[in-house]
Design a protein around this nucleic acid. Structure first.
Length: 407
DNA sequence: TCTGGGGTCCTAGGACCC
DNA sequence: TCTGGGGTCCTAGGACCC
């Protein structure tokens, strides 16, 4: 028996633009570009359908978007702080409709309706599929009514198929792909529409004459194998709409930590310049370390690994990382980042980008939990550590870590 | 298409240990 | 001293996503 379409991808339409329109209703109906001021530097993070009609797309440079967008288009830098709030409010609504909700990104949630059919059934529903479809429509209507945000949803037998369906449903639509209809739904689509096929894979496929997912499914092994090796079979299966069921794992940043205190995810901060002088680079490096250290402390974690990212003006990019005794102290992180920077910077070319990333995060036994009074204490701990070193301050419970933390 | 900033996941080689 | 194989950690790079 075929599995029923019960996995749902709920996607907020042109999310950043929609939030900007809540803040400024005058933006409604106009071409809107979020990401920067007209003519400035940066890239488009979101554009309205009116702007897309002129060829403005996410990821495009603001400069190019400025050339394409009509005169009445509005460019806004965006309100990054607010998007997370609206995302959480959308999630609160979504959670009323399904017991299993996974946040995949700021504007995308996955829901699992398996086993919910009977709970939601109404006399008028023709069958279980109709029940789920009605519930999902009610959910997007609630998001629109309560938050004023448009959204779309796809419902299918696999998470990937649901994602593709939500894209096909936009704007403000709901599309269910019936069990068994996956391959036929995907076949006419360009290969790029399949999650997992990015610019590189797309280029390689085009090079061997494959443009659509239907062609990918039909492609002989001899054509795919030289290009994708062992991935060829998986790629073809994905293009047929086959995949694991279930909604997958929660985003690491939202995931619970494991019993030993390890925390999933990374914390990073980077900055792009047109061309940085060595003095600027050093100043920025210090600022980046302060930022990631501060964010780590607010999350109540220490980092066991620091990675420095460096891009030269010719776009050659390299990373240098080091495993360290876990810390979230600015000066400690800065000392390591500086060493990595000196190690990485072998060329005389000016620098285009600098980044600092923290990984191998774990809960900080010293400053947990980090609420109101806790934050003041953490700051005090930081001050002491800055003067006397990390190991100057430890709770009894964290002393056991010291031996293991050292190399 | 002259290219931000936040991420996740995967691969692959080498070190090191048993 | 030479020869293994497996497991795990570390590091660098790259593809991809929103």
């Amino acid at each position: 028996m075929l599995p029923a379409p019960r996995l749902c991808c709920l996607d907020l339409d042109t999310f950043f633009v929609s939030v900007e329109r809540l803040l400024d209703p005058a933006l409604r109906g106009k071409p809107v570009v979020v990401g920067g001021h007209r003519g400035g530097r940066g890239v488009v993070t979101s554009s309205s359908y009116e702007a897309r009609a002129f060829g403005v797309r996410s990821g495009m440079s603001i400069r190019e978007a400025s050339e394409r967008a009509p005169a009445d288009a509005v460019f806004v830098p965006g309100h990054g702080e607010l998007y997370g709030d609206y995302s959480r409010r959308a999630r609160d609504i979504v959670e009323r409709y399904s017991p299993v909700v996974i946040a995949a990104s700021i504007d995308e949630h996955y829901l699992d309706f398996r086993g919910c059919e009977r709970l939601y059934r109404r006399p008028g529903d023709a069958d279980d599929d109709a029940t789920i479809l009605r519930v999902v429509r009610a959910m997007t209507a609630a998001i629109d009514r309560e938050l004023g945000l448009p959204s779309s949803a796809g419902i299918a037998t696999t998470r990937t198929m649901a994602k593709v369906a939500s894209g096909l449903a936009k704007p403000q639509g709901v599309l269910m792909v019936a069990a068994g209809a996956e391959a036929a739904t995907l076949a006419p689509l360009p290969v790029r529409k399949l999650p997992g096929i990015g610019p590189v894979a797309e280029r390689r496929l085009h090079a061997v004459g494959i443009a659509t997912l239907g062609q990918l499914v039909a492609a002989p092994d001899a054509l795919l194998r030289p290009v994708f090796g062992a991935h060829a079979d998986g790629l073809r299966a994905a293009a047929r709409g086959e995949g694991r069921d279930g909604v997958g794992r929660e985003r690491p940043a939202f995931r619970e930590h494991d019993p030993r205190g390890a925390v999933a995810g990374t914390i990073s901060n980077e900055r792009t310049f047109t061309e940085a002088t060595p003095e600027t680079a050093l100043e920025v490096l210090s600022a980046l370390c302060e930022r990631v250290a501060s964010r780590a402390r607010h999350r109540g974690v220490v980092a066991g690994q620091v990675t420095l990212k460096l891009r030269y003006t010719d776009f050659h990019t390299l990373t240098r990382g080091r495993t360290i005794a876990p810390t979230s102290v600015d000066v400690e992180l800065h000392r390591i980042a500086l060493a990595l920077y000196r190690e990485a910077r072998t060329r005389a070319l000016p620098i285009r980008l600098l980044g600092v990333a923290l990984a191998h995060l774990r809960l900080d036994a010293v400053q947990l939990p980090l609420f109101d009074g806790g934050e003041r204490r953490a700051r005090a701990v930081d001050r002491v550590r800055d003067r006397f070193g990390y190991h100057a301050v430890h709770l009894a419970t964290s002393l056991g870590r010291r031996g293991r933390g050292r190399r």
